[in-house]
Simulated assay, not measured.
Amino acid sequence: MSSSNARFNHDPHWQLEKKKTNFQTARESFWKSRQLYLLLLPALIYLIVFQYIPMYGAFLAFKDFDPSLGILGSPWAGMKYFEMFFGGPNFGSLLSNTLLLSMYSLLIGFPIPIIFALFLNQLRPGVKRFVQTVTYAPFFISMVVLVSMLGIFLQPETGFINNIIVALGGDQINFMASAEWFRTVFITSGIWQTMGFNAIIYLAALSSVSPELHESAIVDGASKLRRIWHIDLPSILPTIIILLILAVGNLATVDWQKALLMQQGMNLSTSELIQTYVYKAGVINSNFSFGTAVGLFNSVINFVLLIAVNFIARKTSGNSLW
């Protein structure tokens, strides 16, 4: 029997027939799910056009770019622009500002949607829908409008925040022009805008929790807080870990459009980030090679963080992206 199997395994005609069978199986599987693949097509096209094709532009970081020669025709510059950035006077402040703002946003902003979703899940359906709609709506406010609203709310003379501070006996604060208040305003406004939207995925995960677990816990006399801690939270823990990995993988990527709109001359010491610097150096000053080098460095940081936190999560919890 073993010699017969060995003969068939080394028979080229049998191997060709096996390959044809595998190909036919794959083709039949694809045809059965053709509607699903059709739905996937727009997302695939988006990734190719806006994520993969632009990678070609990374060559600019190693070139002395001349628009008349094109990317491939421009002379090589090696690590020239990386050395300019690392040796520049702004490198330390840019890196610290970006990482500090990102870490504060992660430490403060990441747990809030989880806590909000856990408590929102305990409300009655009608109240739950109303609260979810109210907290979900700010996500659709454009960034320009949001920063304009912040300027109105936080205005020293007429802003209602300063009116409350003065009414309580405090002094007026120019939040938008203050370097020490920039991170606080940036993070709190971001939490207000995205909390309801970010809670949706946790609410979806909570909907899969078996009601029988809660019924058994109620029979045993467990309070709502105990049921949240021992049933709901462990049930959504894999989702939390996956989203945390993705969040850490984007740690060096801050919402730079918002930071740029909030920038003023008096808060540049904390509001100047790597991304805003790339925009000014690469687009406004037309130094495309230098801007690409700085942006590529930022992407490398994100990549290293993503690999590291995914490895740690896989070793400690068994949940990971791959």
Rank of each mutant, 00 (worst) to 15 (best):
L146W: 07
V134E: 06
V131P: 00
L120A: 12
I71A: 09
W76H: 08
F110T: 04
A137H: 02
Y81P: 08
L150N: 02
V131H: 01
I161C: 01
V145S: 15
T135A: 13
M79D: 12
T133D: 11
F140Q: 05
P125W: 02
G126E: 06
N162P: 10
K80V: 09
L95N: 11
Q132W: 00
P138N: 03
L118I: 05
L146D: 03
L101N: 12
F91E: 01
S74A: 07
L154N: 07
N90Y: 15
L154Y: 08
A137W: 14
A117I: 01
L100C: 12
L120C: 10
F116P: 10
Y104T: 12
P111W: 06
F110I: 04
L150H: 01
L120F: 02
N162K: 01
P125C: 04
R124Y: 11
F140P: 06
L150Y: 03
G126V: 13
L146T: 12
L107C: 10
I71M: 10
I161L: 10
P89R: 14
G159F: 03
F140L: 10
L146H: 01
M79N: 12
L101A: 09
P138D: 06
F86C: 05
M149W: 04
V144K: 02
F116Y: 14
T135Q: 03
A137D: 06
L123G: 06
W76L: 13
N121V: 12
I141M: 14
F153K: 01
F110L: 08
L94K: 03
K128G: 09
M84I: 14
N121I: 05
F119S: 01
P156I: 08
F140A: 08
Q122P: 07
L146N: 12
F116T: 03
Y136L: 14
W76G: 09
I161F: 06
I152E: 13
T98A: 00
T98L: 06
G126K: 15
G87T: 05
W76Y: 13
N121H: 15
L107Q: 00
I152S: 06
L94T: 02
I114R: 01
P113K: 08
N121S: 15
G78P: 03
N97M: 04
V147E: 01
A77K: 11
Y136K: 02
L154A: 05
Q132S: 13
R129M: 07
L99Y: 06
P113W: 03
A137C: 08
I115R: 04
S148L: 13
T158K: 10
F130L: 15
P89V: 11
P89Y: 10
V145P: 00
A77P: 01
V145A: 15
M103R: 02
S148W: 08
T133Q: 11
I161P: 00
G159C: 05
S93I: 12
G78M: 03
V145C: 05
L95S: 07
T158E: 05
L123R: 10
F110W: 09
I114V: 15
F85G: 04
T133V: 15
L95P: 06
G87H: 05
L72S: 14
I115G: 12
F85C: 02
A77H: 06
L72G: 09
K128A: 09
S102H: 06
I114G: 08
V144M: 09
L99F: 13
S74V: 04
L154P: 00
P111M: 09
M84W: 07
Q122Y: 01
V131L: 13
G109F: 00
G109W: 00
F153Y: 14
M79A: 15
Q122K: 13
S105Y: 06
F110R: 10
